[in-house]
Design a protein around this nucleic acid. Structure first.
Lengths: 183, 183, 183, 183
DNA sequence: GATGAATGAGCGTTCATTCAT
DNA sequence: TATGAATGAACGCTCATTCAT
């Protein structure tokens, strides 16, 4: 053998799945390899080391949100429509995302161990909250917009944790519904 | 000769600190030992294995909440006072708890790997939410009490994550403040 | 199992043998372990890492020379006797030392890769030459003593290399004989 | 497409440099590749395997000495001139050769691991000594010629080791000077 | 109860080598 | 000829665990 042409993205997607469901440290290079049909050593053809996979995994999800979720605040639609859309897209994502929110999950596990990881995660949540803030601020004053956006991000992260424990999706969905009622 | 008499509780407290700040899998028996002034092998005189430490760590915190936080719902004081007290005690705990909420942190890392861990964590959150629910239900209808309690637990977990990333405690405190306004 | 009580010195002696005959980099922790009847992981109970074994191996030989060879210059015997004794002891050592001179062998392999190794090796040769120098200087002028001692150390190192290639011990012994004729 | 046309000799020259300064086992195919602007796999178009590179590296230096140094003994000049020339050429070579003498360096590292390597190295020193021997034998008796040539080769190898440790070139040069005084 | 020495398995990583392109 | 992707074995090292002392 020795033919396969595994792409970086394939590896990244498998790694993301594993990091979310098993945690970063509990996921071995062998695990990632196996999920891609490779032996662990072969991964080093695509990534310098495990840390790089972790970093690129975080960036991959961050970019996905940037391009699909956070961007909604700038679309040329009404405030209500923006809120409707951002909540729908977000819920769509997390309902089918096995294992919850990568950046939320890794936040507690790795951010004290690796400052580069921490920076990406912190910024991700900041950008996320800011997206909601800007939409709310179209109709609500600064303080309200600020608190509601913070509350939403927090509650959603908590709700994802709960959903992973109980498989109760309808409770999870209440968080988004509540946000939409703010304007 | 002489020496230490290290108690199970001492070890547990060090393990809890480590699990919260480094994660469960990234904390080694040697780490726990060093934190207690023991070598790793000595820990096995107190605990069967690492899993047992994890389990007892979760139970330890669970019991702490049971005895100090959840119990407030049954005290002989007004609803407002209960809410005031439960929020204050909770915030007090998390503001000085380095590394956030043990059960919240471990939820994503271990609950898919170990069903016993998952059961404890799930129950903990259920009991917690139920405590809040019962207090709110003294003044609010079932649905409202249910949602507000759920929202609070979720938002608080999210807020702990954010506080660990940004060290912003005043935002964290808003979550409890908001709950108290419910009645 | 799990009983053995291997001492640091045992491990060191096996490592020295291996480093001399196989080279430092080509000797694996597994090699060292096998030579001691241990698995490779067990060696870390005695040494922090491979570098520490290398370092202590060099120091071990250095100390042996310090205590048995270099010290002869200070003994209360005649110059001729000193020279006789230092040559005899040196030749005794190298004739039975399988694989040549540890510090000479590692000089070219590791001294560019690790400055701590280099320092020890450099000092060893300096001390060695100085021992010979001081003995010769009792009867010869500075310049002669200096050159003859340098020439002896160099020739001896070269002769050890040749002896390892050809097993010709009598040529090797000529180098010491020649030195003794200097006074 | 297009590209390089890397020659065997180019690769060999880089490999020699690396073997001398890092050792044979500590030099990886990737190291050699990088030094040539190739990836490691590409080297296999030029050499069967690492051992072949090692072997040809030794032969390359051996041939250089054969053609430039050892041959001097057969030139049509006086004994004194031969000695002068062979020492000058040798010193020229080693003063600019970063990392010392390839065959001397590898002698201890590889000659016990690979008999083909050992044969080449042993023969190289034999031929070298013989060159000096024949020149000296024009003026000196067999025994003297034999010992002085042996002593010179040995001392020179030792002096190269010392020069690599201390960067002291003037001591090194004394060895050749001394040889020239023999006739 | 604590230690130090040991183990076997596994870690992340690098090795020399192969081969379709 | 060169490359990039792959492999299996080995690397140095750490893991959780055991046990005689």
């Amino acid at each position: 053998m020795a033919i396969k042409k595994t792409s970086k993205e394939e590896i990244l997607l498998e790694a993301i799945k594993l990091f979310k469901t098993k945690g970063y440290y509990n996921t071995s290079m062998a695990d990632i390899g196996k999920a891609c049909g490779l032996i662990k050593g072969s991964i080093y053809h695509h990534f310098k080391n495990k840390e790089e996979i972790g970093l690129e995994a975080l960036k991959y999800i961050d970019e996905f949100f940037e391009k699909n979720i956070f961007i909604i605040k700038d679309e040329n639609i009404t405030t209500k429509e923006k809120l409707e859309k951002i909540v729908t897209k977000t819920d769509e994502y997390f309902l089918k995302s096995e294992g919850g929110c990568l950046l939320g999950n890794l936040a507690s596990e790795v951010s004290r161990q690796n400052s580069e990881f921490k920076t990406i995660i912190t910024l991700y949540f900041k950008k996320w909250q800011d997206s909601i803030y800007q939409i709310l601020n179209e109709k609500l004053d600064k303080d309200k917009a600020n608190f509601f956006s913070y509350e939403y991000i927090c509650a959603l992260q908590g709700a994802i944790i709960m959903m992973n424990l109980t498989d109760n999706t309808s409770s999870y969905l209440e968080i988004g519904k509540k946000l939409k009622e703010k304007v």
